[in-house]
Design a protein around this nucleic acid. Structure first.
Length: 282
DNA sequence: AACTGTCCCTGCAAGC
DNA sequence: TGCTTGCAGGGACAGT
């Protein structure tokens, strides 16, 4: 399921294959995907418009349009963006299709495919960010920007009461971490997911900060994680390889790859399946 | 204000 | 084999 590294991989694909292209035509299949506005609003907002950038905030993909509006795409649980040849056979659950052109002839199609339909696509007015996109406006710091420092992390911890796993999953706190990377980060930082943040000393806080940056950067470098039960692929249909580097996620009951002493426990923390080492995480 | 639990939806796997 | 059940999970929302 797409978290920051997968979304960043998709963003890089958009940069390559979509930025600079003009949208000549838009098809919206299932209306649920455009539920924030409407089928008409998406078609009106994109038709004849050029895509001039591809950026990311947490798990949100954002494109500047030459109309002055912005395109937001969120993959949520099962969304995929695929670049395809015009007229190519579409997979089931292809809910939005944008026909893209370099000049005046259509040269590719961008498909938004999403079996579980949690994902969404919307064109919005950046001046109305707070009212139209309150979730986006409230996002916390993106951990792959210079803004994200151990000091910021310390400040954020001051006003929080939940456990470390809940905090990492909270998008208002740090944006982009989901269940897989929360577990991997806490394991690398040697911290128990149910531990409370109030008594972390500076060294521990720095360790957690480094683990967040390291795990996410390594996962981006590997093109994200493709799991057995998900169909995450990048824009070109390629799988990621970070799943081969997972040390705790999906390894419940197996020995710890890091300390060799503990076994990986699988429990529920913050309402989510959580894997951590019984020996090396404190 | 900040936290917890429930819901949305589909595909897949396990169990009968 | 073929059904049912449970699980996966990001974020909105309601309730505390």
């Amino acid at each position: 399921m797409p978290e920051l590294p997968e979304v960043e991989t998709v963003r890089r694909g958009l940069q390559q294959s979509v930025v600079g292209r003009k949208v000549l035509k838009v098809e919206v299949g299932r209306e649920r995907t455009v539920r924030r506005t409407s089928r008409e609003a998406l078609i009106d907002g994109l038709t004849g418009v050029k895509i001039i950038s591809a950026t990311r905030r947490g798990k949100y993909l954002l494109c500047d349009l030459d109309s002055g509006q912005k395109l937001m795409m969120h993959l949520r649980m099962s969304g995929r963006l695929i670049i395809a040849d015009p007229g190519a056979a579409r997979p089931p659950h292809t809910h939005v299709v944008m026909h893209l052109a370099n000049a005046e002839t259509i040269e590719s199609e961008l498909w938004f495919v999403d079996p579980r339909t949690f994902g969404e696509v919307v064109v919005f007015d950046p001046d109305k960010l707070k009212t139209q996109m309150p979730d986006l406006a409230k996002l916390g710091v993106d951990p792959l920007t210079d803004e994200f420092t151990p000091e910021i992390l310390r400040e954020l911890f001051k006003k929080r009461r939940g456990n470390l796993k809940a905090l990492l999953l909270n998008q208002h706190f740090v944006a982009g971490i989901g269940n897989i990377y929360a577990d991997e980060i806490l394991h690398l930082a040697k911290l128990r997911p149910d531990r409370l943040p109030d008594r972390l000393n500076n060294a521990t806080l720095t360790r957690l900060h480094s683990a967040i940056v390291e795990v996410l950067n390594n996962a981006v470098a590997a093109g994200g994680s493709t799991l057995k039960d998900t169909q995450y692929v990048d824009l070109e249909g390629q799988t990621g390889s970070f799943q081969d580097e997972h040390r705790v996620y999906g390894r419940g009951g197996l020995p710890c790859l890091s300390c060799g002493k503990g076994r990986i426990l699988m429990t529920i923390v913050a309402g989510r399946t959580t894997c951590y080492c019984s020996a090396c995480q404190h």
